[in-house]
Design a protein around this nucleic acid. Structure first.
Length: 481
DNA sequence: AAAAAAC
């Protein structure tokens, strides 16, 4: 099966080939001919399956004929988040380069002026999040009566976010005579009802079992004993592996995102953050830095969990196990995209245990616990005196004021402590552990070692290990069980 | 429990 067999125009095939694609993904192979035949469609597909191109490509061909009129867009694509909407717009630009399609991206957080101007001129493709679309519609800037094609993308996400009433209202403003495509990773009852109500004899395509995980992604659970501080310890150790080219780190809370990014920066990592409390321009800027490799770590809330398509993300970390098991599948799906392999680590404390159970129930697979034999960098045990040395040195420094605080500890906020004798820092680190050259400047590494040792000690969590075999140093401090 | 989306 090749793109040439799907009925797309020659210009479009050229654009696809230029973009480096030769073979359609299963959802593209199944959806594109149906869409070109103007059928309604339900696409049940995980992200990372090539879903976006499955509707963008045929839409370009369909819209190539005819032209738009002022304030009357010819097609509408609804997306749950601004990032996703922007990404779909990028796809239209990429594949539509040979066509003269006009496009407007209606999302919040940016000024309305340009959006209104574009609408005035008339657009072939309108890509929108529901809020801004409703807003502009209410102001009389949009007429949807000429809109003969509708795409509802990530419908289950829309449901989660309470957008279904908005979607229903928008649907009623479109002409009855139209083509409607609905995409969703899962099919909960309210989405089924929505499809029954607004789609006409749809063809249903399901390309992967809902909530199945991508087999290209190697998943690990990393048991961590204790608190957020120890999680940060474990995380830094994992990030220091050579193979971590870049990574998205998901947290459950925006505050955790901010704290973790701050902490990673202080440890010399090139990291950035993205969450819903940030200005839109800031979000895009951070995303671009990550895409361009100016930073290689992006700490994110679930705003980035779904649909974000960034090429070549080598690792995903779940700093917290997500509350909703669906989100787990979406988060780790940011790696292993386009047939590449990826690795996903989930840090697990007792607080995460229940969420992990739900995830394993949903996916129907047990996730491997990272154990000694398979740990990334098995190492010789540290010399006995090596663990004593930093404790002594540490007692000479100011003790923590509040030993119970486990977020944003002042030890991290404080300026760098004077370096330990190099011998100590080295003795604590296994010889075979890769230097974190690409991720964290080595000079900061000794500092990070210093900082976490005192903390563990003061918290008086008991012995450092209970292991018999060689344990990677970074896991020694944090692994439970 | 959280995050997302309109001013």
């Amino acid at each position: 099966m090749s793109f040439a067999d799907l009925g797309l125009s020659d210009e479009l095939l050229t654009a696809v080939t230029d973009a480096g694609y030769t073979e359609p993904t299963p959802i593209q192979a199944q959806a594109i001919p149906s869409v070109l035949m103007m059928r309604d469609l339900i696409g049940i597909a995980q992200t990372g399956t090539g879903k976006t191109a499955a509707f963008v490509l045929p839409m370009i061909d369909i819209l190539a004929h005819g032209r738009s009129r002022a304030r009357m867009p010819r097609s509408l694509i609804l997306e749950p988040t601004r990032e996703l909407a922007a990404q779909v717009a990028e796809n239209f630009e990429k594949y539509g380069s040979g066509h003269k399609l006009s496009m407007a991206l209606l999302i919040g957080g940016v000024s309305m002026g340009d959006q209104i101007k574009a609408l005035e001129k008339g657009v072939d493709v309108l890509i929108a999040t529901p809020g801004r679309l409703m807003d502009l519609f209410g102001r009389g800037n949009i007429l949807l009566t000429g809109c003969s094609m509708l795409v509802i993308d990530e419908a289950d996400r829309m449901l989660d976010m309470g957008f279904i009433p908005d979607i229903e209202e928008i649907c009623t403003k479109l002409p009855k005579q139209r083509q409607t495509l609905l995409f969703s990773a899962t099919m909960p009852a309210p989405i089924k009802r929505l499809a029954d109500k607004f789609l006409d004899n749809p063809k249903t395509i399901e390309v992967s079992r809902p909530a199945s995980t991508n087999l290209n992604i190697k998943q690990w659970l990393v048991p961590v004993s204790g608190n957020a501080f120890k999680k940060r310890d474990a995380l830094r150790g994992l990030l220091a592996q050579d193979e971590v080219r870049n990574a998205i780190i998901f947290c459950n809370r925006k505050t955790t995102v901010r704290e973790l990014n701050k902490s990673l920066k202080q440890h010399g990592f090139k990291s950035g953050e993205i969450h819903g409390d940030m200005e839109q321009a800031q979000r895009i800027a951070e995303l671009d830095l990550f895409k361009d490799g100016k930073i290689n770590i992006l700490v994110a809330s679930d705003v980035a969990a779904r649909g974000l398509d960034i090429k070549g993300v080598s690792h995903v970390f779940n700093f917290d196990a997500p509350w909703h098991p669906d989100d787990y599948v979406h988060r780790i799906g940011r790696t292993g995209r386009g047939g590449a392999t990826g690795i996903a680590y989930t840090l697990v404390t007792s607080e995460d245990a229940e969420n992990i159970q739900n995830i394993e129930k949903l996916t129907g697979q047990k996730i491997d616990r990272l154990d000694v034999a398979e740990a990334p960098a098995p190492a010789a045990a540290a010399a006995p005196e090596a663990t004593e040395e930093p404790r002594r040195a540490r007692r000479e420094r100011a003790p923590r004021k509040d030993a119970r605080r486990d977020t944003a500890p002042e030890a991290e906020a404080a300026p760098a402590a004077p370096a330990e004798p190099a011998r100590v820092a080295r003795a604590e680190r296994p010889e075979r552990r890769p230097e974190p050259v690409a991720v964290a400047p080595a000079r900061n590494d000794a500092r990070s070692e210093e900082r976490r040792r005192p903390r563990r000690d003061e918290r008086d969590d008991g012995p450092d290990d209970g292991w018999n075999g060689p344990i990677p140093d970074f896991l020694r401090a944090v692994i439970a069980l």
